[in-house]
Every structure is written in C-alpha cells, then in structure tokens.
Nucleic acid binder design. Structure first.
Lengths: 223, 223
DNA sequence: ATATATAATTATGTATACAAAAAACTCAAA
DNA sequence: TTTGAGTTTTTTGTATACATAATTATATAT
C-alpha cells in the first residue's frame, strides 16, 4: 500500500537547519571543543546570512553545547571533570527512574525491539563497524527511554547523554569494550523482561558507571 | 568599607534583557498561556528592534516556556495534565537525589541559612505577605539545591520548577496551605540536620506530592 | 628586543529593509 | 446570515547595513 502523506509541511526554517547542522558537527567532533563559532564564517560556509546562524547559536547555548561571552562570541563548550561528574550524577538518577518506569510500562513490541537491537549489535560487532555499534548503542537506550512514556524525561536524558556523546566516539572505537557493552545490554534486557526492577536498576547503573570510567580514561581525567 | 568593585562588566546584551523580561512576564502570569508573542509589538513595547526579541524567543523556546510554529510565530506554552505529570515524575526523582546529596554535603552555614529561611517564612506568614511567602519558599529549596554542589542538577531542577511556577501563584495565595508548607519545611530541615536520608527523602517527596495536588486542583485537572 | 601607544581590521550587537506567507478584511452571491 | 473569492494588512523569515567593541597589526620609544 502506498503511503500518500502529502508532506505539505516539509518546511524548516533556516535557523533550525543551521541548528541541526551545527549540533551534529559538534557531536561528531567536526567542531571541536574550544573552537570559535564565527558568525560570518559559518554564514558563508552554509550559504545563509548571519541571522539564522545567530538564532541557532542561541539555542545551542541554552542546550549547553556552546558557551557565549558577550561581545566576544560563542565557542564549542568544553566539558570539565567537574561537569562530567555533575552530568553523570544526574544521569544515574534519571536512568534509574527510566528503568523503573520501563519495567512497569514496556510493551511486548518494545521488548522485541530491544531483542532486535541486540541482534543488530552482534552483527555490527562481527563486521567491526564502529559507527554502526555506536548508533545501535544509542538506539538501545532510546527504546528504553521511549517505553517510559515520559516526554520530559526523554528530553532531559537525551540532553545529558549529548553532553558526553562527543567524548564517547573515541572509546567506542575500542573493540575491547564491545563485548562488555553487549553483555550489559543483554543483562538489562533480561531484567526488564522479567520486570525485575532491582536487577534492572543494578545493571543500568553498572552500565553507566563503566561508561564513566571509559570516558574519564579517554579524556585524561584522573579519579 | 567601600565596595570598590569597578563593575566594568555590567553590560548585558539586549537579547538577555529581553529574555529575562519575557521570562519574568510569563512566570508571573503577565503573559498568559496561549498568548501570542508578536515580535513587532514586543519590540515597540520594550523599545528595541526585532532582532533581540527573536533571539530571546529562541531561548525561551528551548526552555519550554514558549512554543513556536514556523511562519506563524511563538506563543506562551500551555501545560497539559500530561506535561504536569511528566514534569513532576522527573522532579520527584531529582528532588530525592538533591536531598540525598544535601544530607551528605550540606555545611553548617547552609543549615543556618535554612533555619533563617524558616524564620523569614514565619514572619511573612504573620504579615500575610503572599509574595514574600512565595519567594521564601523558593529560597528554601534554592539553599538545598545549592548545597548539592551539582550545577547541572541545580539548573535542571530550576527549569522543572519553572514549568509549574506560574500555576503555583494561585495556590500560594491560599492561606490554608501556609501552615502545612511551613511544617513540611521544618520536617525537611530537621531531617537534613540529622543527616537522616530516609526521613529527609520521605519528607521532600510528600512535600512535592502535596504541591502536585494543589496545582492540579487549581488548574482544574482531575485525578 | 620589549613595551606601549596608535591605527587598521575584524567580529559582534542592533536596527532596518524587503520578500513571502498567514491572517484579516471586503464585498458580492447564495 | 453565511459562504467564499479576491484584496489588503500584518507577521514572520531572511538578508543587509551600520555602530561599536575586541582583536590584530604597525610603529615608535625605551
């Protein structure tokens, strides 16, 4: 059957196009922490005027991906050891909440999605596709988030995850961690399936903590 | 002793002035949910051009205080029963985290600040100053947030609180609730002082739940 | 060579101009 | 009175202009 959705509203303001572009550039490391975002340069590169660039920067600023100094301009935010700690402390708490809600609310369809995701993960591992692994990993957690049915929770968790996403690219290349990552996902999946909140919470917290250790290592933070 | 801080940098970009102004107008109810934010009208009223207005709106948009429809414009966000539920679900979890951290980290000075705050609350009650009560109530929680030492947590909790702040103005006028509010603050304070995490958590959750009930009543949501 | 003052350049802050979409209005027809 | 086509007005989206602060470059004196 054909999908006749007359996509009347495929219009996106330039500011949002720019916002998505810049955000992606930051998350993939194309724009590095500390790098200046110069309006005219970006405007030329993207072929638009300064106006949408500025509005996009305002949003990135509020999202914490960019820091702005009045009359000096914006630069890509640089996360400190303290920031990382703060983000992870909050994230631990909200991941626990998410798992708790997931155990209550997840549907059979979503459980299937998780199972499928784990299979994709195995495939990506066998083909050693790091990018694929990374996006599958993100997808696994997305399913859990979605199953909570709490839009605000999803939004905040995505934002917190985003804060460290760019620093994760390095460690995800490290094949050593793939097996551990997959084992942890399976443990989490099993616990949710059994609706075993205690086990699920323990598993997710361990999962986050391991990520924290990896990121700290890669970033050269001690402790 | 004279305070010789040559406040060289008391400069604030107009966009931030506008941002604060609009935000305040929304939180105090001067701008009501559903009300349109028309750039030219606001620009004239505030005596600036559209540019800073637009940039401020972009930030309010990301903060969730305003919703924007492309080519139609922005309006003050209207919180639904579902939104309220989502916000409170997350907030409960993070308030519990905050109290937990506070029990570990709060200093004697900050405990004193809490005690002072409770005294201010009593004073405001005796003079029946509703505005005073409201700001003292906000201040009480601010002290607890601050004691966690987690900037990200503080930021998110402030944002969550903000989402319902404007709906709280009504119920704070209701003298009935003042005594309960104060009693709850005292209970929370005592528990933190004893570093009794269990009691403190229970107290803060009850406190949030009571707020939820009040807001639901005032907003005419059932359940 | 270093430091300092000054001029030239560049970037941001703000206002304004113009195009195009959306909303409001007008007025004739049912 | 309501409906609807066509027109006017308003509003947003985007680009650009101009002023001023920040940075860089230049030149001069020590």
């Amino acid at each position: 059957m054909k999908d006749i959705s007359l996509n009347i509203d495929d219009y996106l303001p330039l500011r949002d196009v720019v916002f998505n572009t810049l955000r992606n550039a930051i998350l993939t490391g194309e724009l590095q922490p500390g790098e200046r975002l110069m309006e005219i340069k970006l405007a030329n590169k993207l072929g638009v005027s300064r106006t949408p660039i500025r509005e996009a920067i305002r949003k990135l600023e509020l999202e914490g991906l960019v820091v702005n100094t009045p009359r000096k301009g914006a630069e890509v935010a640089n996360i400190s050891a303290e920031d990382l700690h703060d983000v992870l402390e909050v994230r631990r708490s909200l991941e626990a909440l998410a798992i708790d809600l997931a155990c209550d609310k997840i549907t059979d369809e979503m459980l299937d999605e998780l199972a499928t995701n784990i299979e994709s993960f195995k495939n990506a591992m066998s083909t050693k596709a790091a990018t694929e692994i990374a996006s599958t990993d993100v997808g696994f957690h997305d399913i859990i988030y979605k199953s909570t049915g709490n839009k605000r929770l999803i939004q905040i968790l995505n934002n917190l995850r985003e804060q460290m996403y760019r620093y994760r690219l390095e460690y995800i290349k490290d094949q050593e961690s793939w097996n551990r990552l997959m084992t942890e996902h399976i443990t989490i999946y099993d616990a949710i399936k059994r609706r075993d909140k205690e086990a699920a919470t323990e598993a997710i917290l361990g999962h986050i903590d391991n990520q924290e250790i990896n990121i700290r290592d890669k970033m050269g933070f001690d402790r």
